[in-house]
Design a protein around this nucleic acid. Structure first.
Lengths: 131, 131
DNA sequence: ATCGGTGCAAAGGGTTTGCAGGGTA
DNA sequence: TACCCTGCAAACCCTTTGCACCGAT
């Protein structure tokens, strides 16, 4: 749409990029703020939202919705699904896919994509069950 | 938790119950307001939110999240999944299930449930493609 | 020296809550 | 009549936007 002006390198952007690269799982904006503030304490939440959207526009991140809230993950990944830990609220990526789904479609429905979320307990939380 | 006081029958609650019964698909709060106002024009949005939560507490409805926003469907249904139409934003129920998913779980993850959403075009929208 | 980026604070959109009046039982 | 329910408006939470200052180029 609009011609992208050149992006500048700032401490904030580098730090946001780094936490997403090293997280190995999708991160919510609040998680990004928490992780980045150890490096850049003054980081404003607005900067996080703006930067995440920027990275999506750039094609480097993709937004996903899990358990009703948005998370961002690296765009380069191949088709996969997600695990949501109902204890710690973290989201993980799961390699692999369910396979054939078209048999679930009544006639008239046209499928373009699908999303699968498995809910449960992640390794940390299943070791030491809560409550 | 708290002892349920007896529920009163009001025009609002009956109308909200009726649209959910006749919709045959999960409804978002805004959809409920729109549908009920043809019967009860004065209906306030707060009443809709309160009543929907009440029905969930009563075990008559269950909340589901599709495409990042909440919808409510009848609780009595057997295990099934959902279809999200990216053109008209409506959600539909799809009978059937994907089958075996545990092969997607890396060790240490414990599955308690799963949710599958197929995205695409519903019959109405695939007949007359938009734009 | 530019002018894009940042942080703060205010604005938005959806959902929840407080309260006084209304309606069911 | 008692008190639950409703509608309005304010409060909330998360996200976006406006604006003046900061800082990368």
């Amino acid at each position: 749409m609009k011609p992208q002006n050149p992006r500048r390198n700032t401490r904030q952007r580098e730090a946001i990029r780094d936490v997403l690269l090293s997280a190995n799982r999708p991160l919510a904006p609040q998680e990004v703020v928490g992780l980045v503030r150890s490096t850049v304490p003054s980081l404003g939440i607005a900067t996080v939202y703006r930067t995440l959207k920027e990275y999506v526009e750039d094609g480097w991140l993709v937004p996903i919705t899990v358990a009703g809230s948005i998370r961002y993950e690296l765009a380069q990944m191949e088709h996969h699904h997600h695990f949501y830990c109902r204890s710690c609220d973290k989201t993980y990526s799961l390699p692999g896919c369910t396979g054939e789904l078209s048999r679930l479609l009544p006639s008239g429905f046209v499928m373009s994509s699908h999303d699968l979320t498995i809910n449960g307990l992640c390794p940390s939380c299943s070791e030491a069950p809560s409550g």
